[in-house]
Design a protein around this nucleic acid. Structure first.
Length: 876
RNA sequence: GGGGGCAUAGCUCAGCUGGUUAGAGCGCACGCUUCACAUGCGUGAGGUCACAGGUUCGAGUCCUGUUGUCCCCACCA
């Protein structure tokens, strides 16, 4: 038999074991009609960089679920993949080019895409390597990428269908424009932050009078595009001027003064400049009053030719000049500091400009409704369910989705324009001639789709949809989606309505939402703060198992968690404990033939640990089914460390080292049985070390990854026996505490006198009691008198313990201890009495609770009596 | 303005559908070279479960309000 190394060293085996799993197809999902399918899709990490701690947690949770279900006998598909991350990747590559002194225009579309694919290949590979380091047991044979052939086909199909139904349209509307990325953004891609700015008050002259109207703006440069000034209807201050014309300063354009409900008369001057081309609200006002839309800014944030003499200037430079020009003209009334929310590009953080622009949109109202209903009707459930509210909140207030992006890296919009007749052609296949006029002068739309358009199809595009592939039929809809609450609006929601619309089914039944991994001080981990911790470095230092466990313990679904090295250390210590417990068992087994559990005569302690094991099997299974991974890990660690290591292993030593061969075999059998089960329970959480230890277990067996998850066996529950045995544990704890209380050194063995009804239990466990309690003898006595007239005593569940007072015993300490105990017991009696005196409790509470309370009261009354007697004894 | 989270031991957090004496890890105190493990073992100290009401026989748990704190959305130009 091979021997385990004395120290737990994950570096010795983690990579080796992963390679072995992979080579032997342990992750492969088979279409097996004899099994129940279980599937989940990995949220595809962006190919922009590497995995961070948030990914590590997300992947670990998925892997735990995957391994658990696989061991339970499901045919599990965990499908891995990466996302092309259109805008984010393009930004990275543009930056890379910049460093080389290049622009994407110089490179051209094709050249740029070549670079992009090279980038993708490099980073997707790196991400996969990281996933492997973590132990992710996903099916690599089905690795997907949002821009691979399968997914691209699905994108075209989905676009075509939506277009065909009239749910995709092209129109000029106000969108969020990033002047640095030079693309449109969806509403969800804009981040708002409170920035310090100014409020400039300008006077616009009213034609035919000497009067002025004062407006206030935070973006003076947009005044060049003003096509009206609006006031609230019936605002007395301006009623005489309504219908009059104003002259827009600097430009000289004649613009009307209109009335519109949108204006808040309480705010500012009650008069608002209206710039339909550069503000979403103004755009709406413009529509109502049929105002011209004059766009004065270029795509790169400079002013355009309609800005007159300001053309070509950067937006901020133009702002400066306009303000100073207005001041020169005496039209600047005042400047106030003004903090306001400014939108920023979620990728490059530049200030976005609301700009009117011709873009493609998805009509959301008809899609949102069924997506809301599906969750209402529980076809898809959020865990925890409070996130359903956030989901509803989004969908109920949703606006049409801008899906076109002025980028190159992504799915090109499958629309062609005929150069001759102007026909717009949307098609699954690339058309060669115009279906209307037969012209071959077709040009494809230059834009690409929002990255999330393809991500939205992920649960089925990866399975070959729209084709009815066997895997689509077998694995779709998926069972669970695991992701963070921060991308509910970006992704979860869009998968929901896309899945329902395209396949007629919800894409997943459960959505397990987790929180963010924060740093030690509770701050978000971010590049700008430099407080991010690289999961790989942690793995390098502590091993993947420790990292995984640390990311799961003490974490509740949906809640943020803090990452601390101390947690990783705690996890490492636990794994080390497991390692050593296994080593202990195996070093005792050596090459001995150990009988199976069924052939062994079980001792009380054996039944107790098996009972505890069964309770743990049940708790862990239930918790995992409810996705309470943190609780499952907690229960397991409690069982392994406290019950198995601290108690059972110690309890087994007398049998192991004694000369009763049958007892020794029995103990070995139980140790192996419990170890084997514990390893299998632990495997989803700490896959590497459990696989490694498993390989040392005697007998013929395969890998633990393919082993069966332990099942609850009713006849091994031994509830009564286990409860009785708790008395022995209580006795040992009592004796230990008594010794400490009277300053008796642990090494000094004491003679115990025990008044008890459980004589058989005591005699069966005599050796364990002696060993664990540090006693020289356990003597069953009729009364405390046997211990002599001066003895310390304590009541426990098994009876009353007496230890004769030796010279080492501190009498005062003992009195103090007894008095404290008396106080506690008196308190308990008062509490129980109070409860039992309550008629309501007696009549309405379940009978069992009332009985329990009575029993408790009796026990405490008995204890009180004995403590008082003991105190009297010591006084004497 | 709308929505949501959190508030439990010195620290980080668990506590499911209300029911034993409210738990864990870390930290702290005291004591241990006990032949798997000092990444360890034993014993202990430490909590009016934010505050005020309410429902109930019974509330950390349910309801209402208050305070503090964090997040998301909307946005007054």
């Amino acid at each position: 038999m091979r021997e385990m190394q004395t120290t737990y060293d994950p570096k010795q085996f983690e990579d080796r074991i992963y390679a072995d799993w992979q080579e032997n197809g342990c992750f492969r999902a088979e279409i097996d009609e004899g099994k129940v399918p279980f599937s989940l899709m990995m949220p595809p990490p962006n190919v922009t960089g590497q995995l961070h701690m948030g990914h590590a947690m997300d992947e670990t949770m998925q892997d735990v679920i995957t391994r658990f279900k696989r061991m339970q006998g499901y045919s599990v598909l965990w499908l891995p993949g990466t996302d092309h991350a259109s805008i984010a990747t393009e930004v990275k590559i543009v930056n890379q080019l910049k460093e080389e002194g290049l622009t994407k225009e110089e490179l051209g579309r094709e050249g740029f895409l070549e670079r992009a694919w090279a980038w993708k290949n490099k980073y997707a590979g790196r991400i996969c390597d990281q996933l492997k380091k973590l132990g992710s047991s996903c099916d690599w044979s089905r690795l997907a990428f949002t821009m691979d052939e399968r997914c691209s086909k699905a994108v075209r199909e989905a676009f075509f269908r939506l277009y065909d139904k009239g749910l995709i349209y092209r129109g000029s509307r106000i969108i969020n424009w990033c002047p640095d990325c030079k693309t449109a953004l969806s509403d969800a891609e804009v981040e708002y932050s409170e920035d310090a700015g100014f409020f400039w008050h300008f006077k616009y002259p009213v034609d035919g009078t000497d009067e002025f109207i004062t407006i206030a703006t935070t973006r003076p440069e947009t005044m060049l595009g003003d096509t009206a000034v609006a006031v609230h209807p019936g605002d007395a201050r301006y009623s005489s001027l309504v219908g009059k014309t104003l002259t827009l300063p600097l430009v000289g354009r004649k613009i009307p003064l209109v009335e519109d409900e949108y204006v808040d008369p309480e705010f500012g001057t009650g008069a608002v400049k209206i710039t339909p081309a550069h503000d979403p609200n103004d755009f709406e006002v413009g529509l109502r009053h049929d105002l011209p839309v004059i766009r004065v800014m270029n795509d790169d944030g400079t002013m355009n030719e309609l800005a007159g003499e300001y053309a070509g200037l950067d937006r901020y430079e133009a702002r400066k000049r306009i303000v100073s020009e207005m001041e020169k003209l005496g039209l600047l009334v005042k400047v106030e500091p003004h903090a306001h929310n400014v939108g920023h590009c979620y990728r490059c953080h530049s200030t976005v400009e609301p700009i009117v622009s011709k873009q493609w949109f998805v009509k959301m109202a008809p899609l949102a409704k069924p997506a809301i209903d599906a969750v209402m009707k529980n076809k898809t459930k959020f865990v925890p369910d409070r996130f359903a509210k956030i989901y509803y909140n989004w969908l109920e207030n949703i606006r049409d989705w801008c899906i076109s992006r002025q980028l190159w890296w992504g799915h090109r919009i499958p629309v062609w324009y005929c150069g001759d007749c102007g026909e717009v052609i949307c098609s699954r296949e690339t058309p060669s001639v115009c279906p209307k006029c037969g012209s071959a002068h077709l040009t494809q739309d230059e834009d690409v789709l929002d990255t999330w358009f393809s991500s939205a199809l992920w649960p089925f595009s990866t399975l070959g949809w729209p084709d009815k592939t066997p895997e689509f039929e077998y694995f779709y809809p998926t069972d669970v989606l695991v992701t963070g609450y921060d991308i509910i609006p970006f992704w979860v929601m869009r998968m929901m309505f896309s899945g329902i619309e395209q396949t007629g089914k919800v894409p997943f039944h459960d959505v397990l939402i987790h929180g963010l991994v924060r740093d030690e001080q509770g701050r978000k981990m971010s590049k700008s703060l430099g407080n991010g911790i690289d999961p790989l470095e942690v793995i390098d230092k502590y091993g993947a198992d420790s990292l995984r466990l640390s990311l799961l313990t003490g974490v509740a679904p949906g809640n943020d968690t803090r990452f601390t090295e101390a947690k990783v250390e705690a996890a490492r210590n636990f794994i080390n404990k497991v390692w050593n417990a296994a080593r202990f068992v195996l070093m005792n087994v050596k090459d001995e033939e150990v009988p199976p559990l069924s052939e062994v005569r079980l001792q009380p302690a054996d039944r107790w640990i098996i009972s505890r094991l069964m309770a743990t099997v049940r708790e862990v299974t239930v918790s995992l089914q409810k996705y309470d991974l943190g609780i499952a890990a907690d229960k397991l660690s409690d069982f392994v460390w406290n019950d198995f290591c601290d108690w059972y292993i110690e309890l087994s030593k007398p049998a192991l080292y004694g000369d009763d061969a049958e007892k020794r075999k029995g103990a070995l059998s139980v140790l192996l049985y419990v170890l084997d089960n514990a390893l299998r329970l632990l495997h989803p959480f700490i896959p590497f070390v459990t696989e490694e230890i498993y390989s040392y277990l005697p007998g013929e067996h395969g890998r633990i990854i393919s082993a069966e998850f332990p099942r609850y066996v009713g006849k091994l529950a031994y509830k009564k026996e286990a409860k009785a045995f708790e008395g022995v544990i209580g006795l040992i704890k009592t004796v230990r505490a008594m010794k400490v209380a009277v300053n008796c050194p642990p090494s000094r063995k004491v003679h115990i006198y025990l008044v008890t009804d459980c004589k058989r239990l005591v005699s069966l466990n005599r050796q364990s009691i002696l060993r664990l309690a540090g006693a020289s003898a356990v003597e069953i006595a009729e009364s405390g008198a046997a211990a002599g007239n001066k003895a310390v005593s304590q009541v426990c569940d098994l009876g009353q313990v007496f230890i004769p007072l030796g010279e080492l015993v501190d009498l005062e300490e003992e009195k103090k201890r007894l008095e404290k105990e008396l106080e506690r017991v008196t308190g308990e009696i008062a509490r129980a009495n109070g409860k039992l005196a309550n008629q309501g409790f007696i009549s309405k509470a379940p009978k069992k609770l009332v009985d329990d309370e009575r029993a408790k009261l009796e026990k405490f009354l008995d204890m009180k009596e004995k403590i008082e007697a003991q105190l009297k004894e010591l006084e004497a």
